[in-house]
Nucleic acid binder design. Structure first.
Length: 422
RNA sequence: GGAGAGAUGGCAGAGUGGUCGAAUGCGGCGGUCUUGAAAACCGUUGAGGCCUCGCGGUCUCCGGGGGUUCGAAUCCCUCUCUCUCCGCCA
């Protein structure tokens, strides 16, 4: 959520940002300002009446304590009328405020000036590429590998839960565990505090990180208990400090969490979702940074570099994209995607996305800090995957495939697995 | 799941219808004293909105929401959470 005062002072920036992000029109910005204007003038009116009513109430108290009942009675008559008037106005005030806030939630975050303007994924910039994308040669796509070896059971997954909920069997289960451990260990060494988070969150948390109202259809909902299955650890972890005021000397706050992630992925089909390319449940190690506003963009770069270092460690060729305004999403100001090369499919697969949210999430969740002058300010939040497992596994199965069909274990994972081949 | 108790400022803890945004203690900050520190003493110390260039004014907030009343931290309803006991259980 943007600050309404910011919108008032930078109306055109907000509107342009909205259009650049692919919204059809920016009329909602004017609506917000109009409603806010009404709300503010109403606040003054109501406050004046309340002031009068408070003053009279005290007067009554005074008269009563002195035993002047009749005089008090007169004042009470007056305030009773006042109260009636107030009731209606307060109702209106409340309605205006909730209208304003609903509208406010529909305005996306403003892209940073360094973000390329564009409407679709074709206009994303290739920030850089690392390693040589391998030729397919004799390599099979990962789904053939795992099917032949019996390592991932999609069919039984479909029987037991549904499509997109696979079983990982034997060496692949071990490989995933190794990846998770490796990712967590490395993040911890880099100053991230590991936390284990709830896998279900309430509505306030979903709103705090911006899944509601923009992306509610992505989440699995448990209506009976009013809970949402987390689509990413970003949600519980960023909300960890919701409604808190952090002392400045505690900053920055870096967290890492492994969780499963659940996404409905409505409308997906075809070769894009083959094998491990897209699942309803997958594992991910997520990094969250809560930082001083001045530090946010530097922290985004170091977050991106850190996520890249994981792919370098695994020796998997990848490329980094700087997302254009139209492909970036509602809540971000700037975002990088990391895509690993899948030689079995001859295509890039997204395995990480590193974003700066500015104050957008923190304002929603009243996540603040006290600066050295004692003033309370909104923090900035960032997050990045480090990394999402299934596509990394797919890339390993294809990249580390030997000509005889064996799969080598990446060097950095061998200590976690105690073997050289799957 | 059943029965009971509770939720107050950074923390502890008073306050049961009027002058309470809230005693007191601890903590924090500033000062006196000291070569420096501690102790002691004095002062100060919640958040948010609106108006204002500023001084300042004003409103709201005592777990969340709603109600009674001229007036609510205090009374009523409801939800959430915490604690104790019982039951169930990885």
């Amino acid at each position: 959520m943007l600050d309404v005062n910011y919108i008032r002072e930078h109306t055109n920036v907000v509107k342009q940002g909205m259009l650049n992000k692919g919204e059809k029109n920016s009329a909602v910005v004017d609506e917000v300002l109009e409603v806010d204007e009404k709300w503010r003038s109403m606040v003054q009116k109501v406050d004046e009446l309340r002031n009068e009513s408070n003053t009279k109430a005290k007067e009554i108290g005074n008269l009563m304590s002195k035993g002047k009942k009749e005089e008090a009675q007169k004042v009470i008559q007056h305030t009773s009328k006042l109260k009636e008037k107030l009731k209606g106005l307060e109702e209106e005030l409340r309605a205006l405020k909730s209208t304003r806030d609903d509208l406010l939630l529909r305005i996306p975050n403003v892209p940073h000036e360094s973000v390329p303007v564009g409407h679709s994924e074709e206009e994303n910039q290739v920030y850089h590429t690392w390693g040589e994308p391998y030729d397919k040669e004799w390599r099979k796509p990962h789904w053939e590998v795992v099917e032949e070896a019996g390592w991932i059971d999609f069919e039984r997954g479909a029987k037991v839960a549904g499509a997109g909920f696979p079983f990982y069997v034997g060496p692949i289960a071990l490989l995933q565990r190794a990846l998770i451990n490796y990712f967590l260990n490395k993040a911890t060494e880099h100053g991230f505090t590991e936390i284990q988070a709830p896998y279900f969150v309430n509505e306030d948390s979903a709103r705090g990180t911006g899944q509601i109202p923009d992306k509610e259809d992505m989440m699995y909902v448990i209506p009976r208990d009013e809970l949402f299955a987390i689509p990413t650890a970003e949600v519980p972890v960023t909300n960890f400090h919701r409604d808190e005021i952090v002392e400045e000397d505690q900053l920055p706050l870096f967290y890492v969490a492994y969780t499963p992630c659940w996404r409905r992925e409505a409308g997906s089909y075809g070769k894009d979702v083959r094998g491990l390319n897209r699942l309803h449940q997958f594992d991910k190690v997520e990094l969250v940074k809560i930082v001083h506003p001045d530090r946010a963009y530097d922290e985004l770069e170091s977050l991106r570099e850190y996520a890249e270092s994981l792919l370098q460690d695994l020796n998997l060729p990848y490329r980094t994209l700087l997302m254009c305004t139209g492909d970036m999403g509602f809540t971000q100001t700037k975002k990088y995607d990391l895509e690993v090369w899948s030689p079995g499919q001859s295509r890039w697969l997204e395995v990480s996305s590193c974003s700066n949210f500015g104050s957008f999430q923190a304002r929603r969740m009243q996540l603040r800090y006290r600066d050295e002058k004692g003033k309370i300010r909104i923090l900035h939040t960032l997050n990045g995957s480090g990394l999402a497992l299934p596509r990394v596994v797919a890339a390993i199965l294809e990249t580390y495939q030997q000509e005889d069909g064996q799969i080598k274990v990446p060097r950095v994972l061998q200590p976690f697995m105690g073997r050289e081949y799957l």
